[in-house]
Nucleic acid binder design. Structure first.
Lengths: 162, 162
DNA sequence: TACATTTACGTAGTTAACTACATATTATGC
DNA sequence: GCATAATATGTAGTTAACTACGTAAATGTA
């Protein structure tokens, strides 16, 4: 086994490490869909489940709820529309907005996909069930939203020179 | 405050959430370097610290130690070379390999940059010091290396149909 | 020793997030 | 009620990881 330098760096490389883990899981998810011949992509579940919950939403609504930029949402929605899962219609009361809704194909396929997502959730749960990992993520995200990584670093940097 | 749908999904959206956190920290780091007028990029610290430790390494060595693909390493190294921090020379005993080393500029600047990285580490430590977060990351990465996210999901999926 | 295999590096193209800018529509305020 | 500001969507270009493929050098083997 080779040296794992990112692990060795501890807190310093936290962001790199979180990126490594998420990249690996997303990659594995993409491969799974491909192997099963399911024509969806790793992050589409977010849109599926969001529209399942809310019925219809605008691009901006979706971006806010996912904390994505709106161009990212547009890119995902365009692909899902091309794949026949979504349709858009102009909002009747506001000409700027688009109402995004699930198509019949999406509603038909959702129960099947839902089984996969439940299985994925269980797989992760098995690894982490005796831990407080999600609570720690809540904590970390809340801390970072109160004061950014840059602000924290600069504070420590300036303390060091006092 | 808006609905945080990714948080709401719990384990299902773990990968999306880790990506969100790492993206945000990396973005904040880039902004910090920009504000301080420091001409380095967020992941260059990995190369700096690796070469500081090992003296010189080949592209493949670096890729293995970081668990990056070698094209990713080449991209980073090309930029750092352009910025004057790295130089390459052919390995005298193996014509296929390049020895990557720090330049004088890099050695001169490293103590200053090191202060920033120490400050960043402290900033993260302050958020997580009373937790076992790094241990949980070790655990998660080890579990995922033993059995991929896809394998775990398919196992659970097939159990569900039995 | 010559040929096949492995290894190291490099290039091209993909992915999914982002910012910055453009345009159209709605809301606000004098 | 018209001009300005804010909002919603869309487009273009950036970033950093990846895979796939190509080439050159070294290694192994018949």
């Amino acid at each position: 086994m080779h040296e794992d330098f990112i692990k060795e760096l501890g807190y310093l490389s936290l962001a790199s490490r979180l990126k490594r883990i998420s990249d690996s899981m997303i990659h594995s998810g993409r491969q799974m869909y491909k192997n099963l011949n399911v024509d969806i992509e790793p992050n589409w579940y977010l849109i599926f489940k969001l529209l399942e919950k809310h019925g219809n939403l605008s691009v901006t609504d979706i971006a806010e709820k996912l904390q994505f930029s709106h161009p990212s949402v547009i890119t995902i929605i365009n692909k899902m529309t091309l794949a026949g899962y979504l349709q858009s219609e102009p909002c009747p009361t506001d000409g700027r907005r688009q109402w995004i809704t699930l198509t019949q194909k999406a509603k038909k396929m959702l129960p099947e996909y839902q089984k996969l997502w439940v299985a994925g959730t269980k797989g992760i749960e098995n690894m982490l069930k005796d831990t407080n990992f999600l609570t720690l993520l809540d904590h970390l995200e809340q801390e970072l939203s109160q004061q950014s990584f840059m602000e924290r670093t600069l504070n420590e940097f300036n303390n060091g020179t006092k």
